[in-house]
């Protein structure tokens, strides 16, 4: 029984890692009060998804999908790589916007700690 689990874990271990990293990222986004740390959590979360996509593209013994005439080799699936390139671009843009906002928040409020921001917000009322 346990052996099965170990085997399952070892053979698919990148998937499990993806899930663990994802949860770490999610935790950081929700539980951290520092806005920059939230953004870092966001990045971790996204990275986990990249890992997941790349894992599903993998084919055992596969190689980079570059067609060389006359050879007979197994290629990994290129499509998820392409998708993830796009997703990375999206992720980078979001990170940029998030940092820009964090800087503006620091400029106007003088802090980037969420609990202090909430306090400041309620005081102004």
């Amino acid at each position: 029984m346990i052996e099965d689990l170990v085997v399952a874990f070892l053979t698919r271990y990148n998937y499990y890692m993806a899930v663990i990293i994802m949860l770490i990222g999610l935790y950081a986004m929700i539980a951290k009060s520092n806005l920059i740390k939230k953004v870092i959590g966001l990045n971790i979360f996204q990275t986990a998804i990249y890992l997941f996509y790349i894992s599903i593209a993998d084919v055992e013994g596969g190689t980079a999908p570059i067609l060389v005439p006359g050879t007979d080799v197994v290629y990994v699936n290129p499509l998820p790589h392409v998708l993830i390139l796009t997703a990375i671009v999206v992720g980078v843009s979001i990170t940029a916007v998030a940092y820009a906002l964090a800087i503006r928040i620091y400029q106007s409020y003088g802090t980037i700690e969420e609990d202090e921001l909430l306090e400041l917000g309620s005081e102004r009322r």
């Binding site: 997941f52 906002l101 964090a102």
Partner: peptide, 25 residues
Amino acid sequence: KGLLAGFNYLIMGTISACFILIGIG
């Protein structure tokens, strides 16, 4: 307050987008 609202919107929006991306995967 718009800045904070925008930031929170971004965090929530991105979580949602990530979920959708996982679903697509």
